[in-house]
């Protein structure tokens, strides 16, 4: 499904990873690595938010950045923050308009994440956990085929954590490719992870045993 060939990326003179090659099929994939190894950057490059210096990315034969690719991808990350000067409802409506997602679908996830009573609140005044829930709501509701999550479980309360895990499991069963970047161990969660990847300095990817 996801084909990454000779991918290189860096900021200025600092090369984060080079010549990364990876093929991933549908399922739950766990990506770990030390601070600064490039996990978050890799997710942003896969989401088409940052441009790779070299290499190619394809998902189901769709090239990264193309309209058909962007339709299939969704990302939830701290580095991709919903607009702070808008209300929660405003952000949900914005995503509904841009991604063509039904408002019911967005509200369903928002209610499950206990955001229902916060719809008129400004995003800026939400707590860290609430902002995380909003970000996850936006990513999950669009029902993507390629779901990219950067530290999705940070700051979540137990109920929200359970709901999040169940939704990721459901996405996997529906044939989506879920890539989770996290420092934590996948064994700590109720998730049937298919593959554990470790990103080391310089972009060396290794497969760890589960």
């Amino acid at each position: 499904m996801l084909n990454i060939n000779n991918l290189s990326f860096g900021y200025g003179k600092q090369q984060l990873f080079s010549n990364v090659n990876l093929q991933l099929d549908a399922g739950l994939h766990w990506l770990s690595g030390a601070n600064g190894s490039g996990k978050s950057s890799l997710l942003r490059v896969l989401a088409g938010l940052d441009k790779a210096q070299l290499g190619s990315i394809e998902f189901d034969q769709h090239k990264v950045g193309s309209a058909s690719y962007q339709k299939l991808v969704a990302i939830s990350a701290d580095a991709v923050a919903p607009l702070q000067d808008n209300t929660v409802l405003g952000v949900l409506q914005l995503v509904a308009r841009c991604r063509g997602t039904a408002m019911d679908q967005l509200m369903l996830h928002a209610e499950a994440f206990s955001l229902g009573s916060l719809l008129q609140q400004q995003v800026a005044v939400l707590s860290l956990g609430q902002q995380k829930k909003l970000s996850l709501t936006l990513a999950l509701a669009t029902k993507p085929q390629l779901l990219l999550l950067d530290e999705p479980f940070n700051a979540l309360d137990p109920d929200s954590l359970r709901y999040c895990c169940s939704q990721l499991q459901a996405a996997k069963e529906k044939g989506a490719l879920v890539l989770i970047a996290s420092h934590l161990s996948p064994e700590s969660f109720e998730l049937a992870v298919d593959q554990h990847l470790e990103l080391k300095a310089g972009g060396h990817l290794s497969f760890s045993s589960l």
């Binding site: 989401a47 088409g48 938010l49 441009k51 990264v64 950045g65 193309s66 309209a67 690719y69 962007q70 339709k71 969704a74 990302i75 991709v80 607009l83 914005l94 995503v95 841009c98 991604r99």
Partner: peptide
Amino acid sequence: VESLAPSA
């Protein structure tokens, strides 16, 4: 905002 764009 860029993540909501239909294409790059």
